[in-house]
Every structure is written in C-alpha cells, then in structure tokens.
C-alpha cells in the first residue's frame, strides 16, 4: 500500500480506501457509490476505474437504493457518504435493503461522533450508533486504529454481509497487531496488569483518548457491534466496576448495550456511563468536540478520579 502525497499520517478512512483500490487493481469487482464525497485516497480509484465510481450526487436515499441494485447484481458495493446523512436521511432504505433484504452493502461514512462538531449539530452523527443498533443483520464498525482499517477490506470480501463503518477523521496510527483483532468477537481488551476491579468500555476516538492518557485500568474497545456477548461476559466477570464512555448520545448507545447485556446475564457489576446527553439543548454556538465532551462531563480527569475511587473502595473491602 502506498502513502498519499501531502498526508503525513494515514487516517483510518484512507487506509481503508487505499486497500480497496489495491483489491480493485487485483481484479475484485468492487464499485464505490458516493453521495458527492471523495477522499485523497479515492483519487486514484476514480482515475483508474471511472465507471466503478458511481456518484449519485447529494442524494443519500438514492445512494442506498442504487447500491442495493448493484449489490443485487453481484457487485461488491461500498457506499460512501458524509455522516450523519446516509443513516439519518436514508434510514428507511437501510432498514429495508440492508436489515430486511440483507443485501451485502458496505455503507461507509466519514465522521463519527463529534469529529466535525465545528460544522454544527447538522454534521454530528452522534445518534448513528444508537440508531443502527436497533437493526438486526448489520454490523456497526468503528475502526480505532490502522490495523482494524487494514483488515476491513478482506473481511468485507470474504464475508459479504451488510455493514456500516464510520470513520473518525482524527483517528490515525497503529495500536493493534492483526492477531489482536477478531471480527467475530467484535471487541479487544487493552490490558493494564496493575488494576483489575474496574474496566472502561468504549469505541472509536475514546479508545485512543484513554490509552493516550495512560488510565490505570483495562480498556475494552468494542470496535464491531454487536459484540459476541458470551465472550464479553466472560471478560466482564473479572471486574467489579464498569465505566462506559462514548462519543455519542447515551440513549441506545454503547452504555445501553452494556446495561442490556449485564441485565440479560443477571450480573450485578456497578456501571457508570459517560456519553453525550444534550440535556441543555443542542449546540447553538460555534463549538468543537472538546467543548462538547467537557459539557457532557466526558473528561480524562473525571475518569481518573473514578478509577481512583473504585480502587480505594476495593482496597477498603
């Protein structure tokens, strides 16, 4: 895989699209359908495979419908749009073509959570994970490093099924080895051997934030939802306390998913969930993701205090 001129670090999206280009060059019948969005990593594909880059214009409903027809014809379709619109505008198409008919469309979208918060609430796909979790048969993937992104193209081609992948434009670099990543489990544990009574469960950008801050606990990265519940429960039995963190609204998101699983398996872990609540209304001024995280109390020092608190209460027992 080549690097792209002018891009110092490879973002998860570009890692993925350059791999797609390599596969197309090697003869895979791949079509990229786009709703008027490109990427530096897509330029070569567009030049080399003109009629395999299908641009429908800013028409997300048609993006999904055309992708459905292409997938029906046996093409390996990657639909690509700007989040949140492919999900929020075209949810009915996703619901029918991907969930119900199970056409093997890979829906990819640039932007995850608050990564484009500067553009305003309209461009924040903060509900997308919650929305997509309501559907059966669709995997929801948040690549948190280059390795996951690299593995996606083979995963898509070897196991054709409906997928939704959202790329956070600030995630770059490598955290995992290939052997760490198992798409059938859907999660990976970043172990910190010192403390075992508390675990943070998160996905996407907050995996990177927690690891960068060196938090004194294990970090579980749920990079592909739904996770394998039984294996996850096996992990969660090791911890007394669970903290979930997500760059998305709390309703129906990762925190809800963990509560559902813990309840289903009759466990009694203490669970604290961090996520966006928008309880003071939707952003009305120019903003960015750090401001929004602060307003929602999603902060590294708050997580540090919580970990310290759980550690002390464990020591006192």
């Amino acid at each position: 895989m080549q690097n792209i001129e002018g891009i110092a670090e490879m973002k998860v999206r570009d890692v993925f699209f350059l791999d797609v280009y390599d596969k197309a060059k090697s003869g895979e019948d791949i079509i990229i359908a786009s709703s008027d969005i490109g990427a530096p990593s897509l330029d070569e594909f567009r030049i080399m495979f003109g009629n395999r880059f299908v641009n429908v214009g800013i028409a997300e409903q048609n993006l999904l419908a055309v992708s459905a027809g292409l997938a029906f014809a046996g093409k390996k379709v990657i639909a690509y749009g700007l989040n949140p619109f492919p999900v929020t505008r075209a949810f009915d198409q996703i619901r029918n073509f991907m969930a119900s008919m199970q056409l093997p469309i890979t829906l990819t979208a640039l932007n995850a959570g608050t990564c484009s918060a500067e553009a305003g609430y309209t461009h924040m796909p903060v509900e997308n994970v919650s929305i997509m979790r309501t559907l059966q048969n669709i995997k929801v993937i948040n690549p948190s490093d280059e390795t996951i992104s690299h593995m996606l193209v083979n995963e898509i081609l070897s196991h054709p099924s409906p997928r939704y992948i959202q790329f956070d434009k600030y995630i770059e670099g490598k955290q995992y080895e290939k052997c760490d990543i198992d798409f059938s489990r859907g999660f990976v544990v970043n172990r910190n051997d010192d403390k075992q009574n508390v675990v943070i469960i998160t996905y996407g950008i907050w995996v990177r934030e927690c690891l960068k801050a060196g938090l004194d606990c294990d970090i579980i990265d749920c990079f592909s939802l739904p996770v394998n519940e039984e294996i996850l429960i096996g992990e969660l039995r090791k911890y007394e306390n669970i903290v979930t963190v997500e760059d998305g609204i709390l309703v129906g998101g990762l925190g809800s998913m963990i509560l559902e699983i813990i309840n289903k398996y009759g466990m009694n872990n203490k669970i604290i969930s961090y996520g966006l609540c928008m309880k003071d209304g939707y952003p009305k001024t120019y903003t960015n993701r750090e401001v929004i995280w602060n307003q929602s109390g999603i902060k590294i020092d708050a997580l540090n205090r919580l970990i310290g608190h759980f550690s002390r209460s464990s020591d006192n027992e």
Partner: peptide, 14 residues
C-alpha cells in the same frame, strides 16, 4: 419510493 433507485442500480450493473 425505493424500487426505482434499486432498479437503476441494477440497470447500471447490467
């Protein structure tokens, strides 16, 4: 409102 887009995608592929 969904059938025509899918039909068009299939026609494109054909």
């Amino acid at each position: 409102g969904m059938g025509l887009g899918m039909a068009a995608g299939l026609a494109y592929a054909l």
